[in-house]
Design a protein around this nucleic acid. Structure first.
Lengths: 248, 248
DNA sequence: CGGCCCATTGAATTGCCTCAACGCTCGTGG
DNA sequence: CCACGAGCGTTGAGGCAATTCAATGGGCCG
């Protein structure tokens, strides 16, 4: 199977054969397998190498002194955890797996070499960082303004589209290996309320969620209900209106 | 008065004379003055040059279809708005002034020249991006987990420390040119409730807030109340424990 | 002086939370 | 093979934090 990072970057730029080879070799140097619910890095640690998720789901989270926990981001296959984090002295948050995960650890220098070798890849990597930031902003909007139904609906839309971008959906369905507690920690809701909201979404025929499989029966309508606007995912390839300019 | 960006970057690295000159000239090429409550860029626009706030307060915000509005970030003097935003086709959020603002518009190429000329400046600029991202994550935690009192307390701590980092505090006081509506839009609370919470904070002797001046009487205690941990601001100069290594 | 923006206050409402209990499924060990 | 416990989902009841609606007052500007 092709490296999901390649698939992800190709949402943005068309990669040359060489680009792909560069990425593929970098991502195969040091591959680690982790179990579910395992910390990768914890708050206070010095930053490690860049981690690229090859398979499975992980998350970024932060814990308050009294134990309250907030999931800050989800990492899906093809996502990188903080390409530049090494610029700070210690991590201000933790990373953990949710499912069993395969990650590729890419050394700082390797990454630098890639960036130097291919301006196109450099641009693509910056693009992933911008999208990560945009997602974080959208979560801020969700938590600040959206109701519980909208928040959950929005999150499901986002995850579905992100998975689809790396080829991990099956028609209207995708895996959703999150518990209701996880969903609550990501949306700032209690697990009890998550449960009731999911029932509401199921009841109105928008989704099915059974076992670990999510099916979105009417993506359009779910997006409308959740006030979801996909623009922030920047899934449109940059060159589409600017192809002539690609040489730059 | 010295350029506030210089002061800000010096929180992180010690800049050479040349570095400062580079920055100072870049920031003086195109200076714009804006009134209060003016949009700088709106959602859907193509990204412009990088804007550096020289004076005044601005914000990033997003509006939902039905008018609900969330302030996503505050820009204080010395902050840059999205050094890399030009990598995407259209803005997914808006920027607006809150007070009268002076900004320096720095062209993409100028920025590139600076980065090429000084690796130290390049690192410092990456650091500002990381801090911006860290602040965004902390807002996610606030909105998701903190109570109204904690949220407002946390925001006040953050703003105060960020202002102090660029020399804009006066002992325990600083300017806070935000209305209670603004504070509500940033914290996801109604302006009515913001009002009541502020009274609570005043009542317990933690702060004064009168006119546009905030005074934090007991920063330690306010931090404790708000579960505030300044680590995410990464205000410690990178070299402090690594000075010997500065040559790299 | 009149009008507007902002802060403040009260009252009624509600979205979501907490607490508590129960059922299901699955893996494990006796 | 069945018993048992753990983790997760589900349900009900009661409570509280924060909201909405509405009205009032102060300060500033034209």
């Amino acid at each position: 199977m092709e490296n999901p990072l390649i698939r992800r970057l190709e949402c943005f730029v068309r990669l040359s054969h060489d680009d792909k080879r560069l990425l593929a070799t970098a991502a195969s140097q040091r591959v680690r397998r982790l179990g579910p619910r395992e910390d990768i890095v914890v708050e206070g640690d010095p930053p490690r190498d860049v981690s690229l998720v090859l398979d499975g789901w992980a998350c970024r989270y932060k814990t308050l002194a009294d134990g309250r926990r907030q999931i800050i981001a989800f990492f899906l296959p093809g996502d990188t955890c903080d390409p530049h984090a090494f610029a700070v002295r210690e991590m201000d948050h933790s990373l953990a797996t949710l499912t069993p995960v395969t990650i590729a650890e890419i050394a700082r220098d390797t990454l630098q070499d890639i960036v130097d070798a291919s301006p196109r890849l450099a641009r693509a990597l910056i693009w992933t960082m911008l999208v990560t930031a945009a997602v974080q902003r959208e979560w801020t909007v969700s938590l600040g303004q959206r109701t519980a139904v909208e928040r959950l609906g929005h999150l499901l839309c986002e995850l579905f589209l992100r998975l689809r971008a790396v080829g991990l959906t099956d028609g209207p369905s995708c895996e959703l290996p999150l518990t209701q507690v996880d969903l609550g920690e990501a949306t700032g809701l209690s697990n009890v309320h998550v449960n009731r909201v999911l029932q509401e979404l199921r009841g109105s025929g928008l989704i099915s969620l059974k076992g670990r499989v999510l099916t979105i029966h009417d993506l359009q309508r779910l997006q409308a209900v959740a006030l979801f606007n996909a623009a922030y995912l920047h899934l449109d390839r940059e060159g589409r209106t600017l192809d002539a300019n690609d040489a730059r």
